[in-house]
């Protein structure tokens, strides 16, 4: 089947088998290998992407279900020039080691802070409890997301003005 959707602001048109997950489509058909698969059964959160702005597990969504939607991956939240404030906070707080869960953490935290830039530590922990990390023990990740809130608050104020 052919599926058409926006990926990181660009139009994509891909021929996939219906059984292809959105994650496999992004990785293997579109070359966006920043989206990682660590369980393929909806537990670990490594494959989290944004669909119409909402964080979803791309292993639990068929590529054909993305028809007409707007998908953003970790690559879409990145640029060459500099780390985003969220990424820089992750680096500063040593919120990653092996880096495998990191794209899912970034996309999830981005969705959360975009919607709730005042999320407190408990809310951040609650939301990130859907993303497994085996290296860090999460302490640095929570600190990083807490610190990054400031940048999202500014962003929200800009959007409102």
């Amino acid at each position: 089947m052919t599926v058409r959707f926006d990926v990181n602001g660009r139009r994509a048109e891909v021929a996939v088998e219906p059984r292809t997950s959105l994650a496999d489509c992004l990785r293997h058909h579109l070359g966006l290998t920043g989206t990682h698969l660590a369980c393929e059964h909806g537990v670990c959160g490594a494959c989290t992407v944004l669909v119409d702005g909402e964080a979803v597990r791309s292993c639990l969504m068929l590529a054909v279900q993305a028809e007409g939607r707007s998908v953003v991956t970790v690559e879409g939240l990145s640029n060459d020039a500099a780390l985003s404030p969220l990424q820089a906070a992750f680096r500063r707080h040593h919120a990653l080691q092996c880096g495998f869960c990191t794209p899912g953490m970034i996309t999830t935290a981005h969705a959360l802070l975009t919607e709730e830039p005042d999320a407190d530590a408990d809310r951040i922990r609650e939301v990130l409890s859907g993303n497994l990390c085996r290296c860090t023990g999460y302490v640095g990740i929570v600190e990083a997301v807490l610190e990054a809130r400031a940048a999202y608050r500014g962003h929200k104020a800009d959007a409102a003005s």
């Binding site: 909806g42 959160g45 979803v56 597990r57 639990l60 969705a111 609650e126 939301v127 990130l128 859907g130």
Partner: peptide, 9 residues
């Protein structure tokens, strides 16, 4: 119910 991403779908 479940986690953030699951709750979105």
């Amino acid at each position: 119910v479940a986690h953030y991403q699951i709750r979105n779908r």
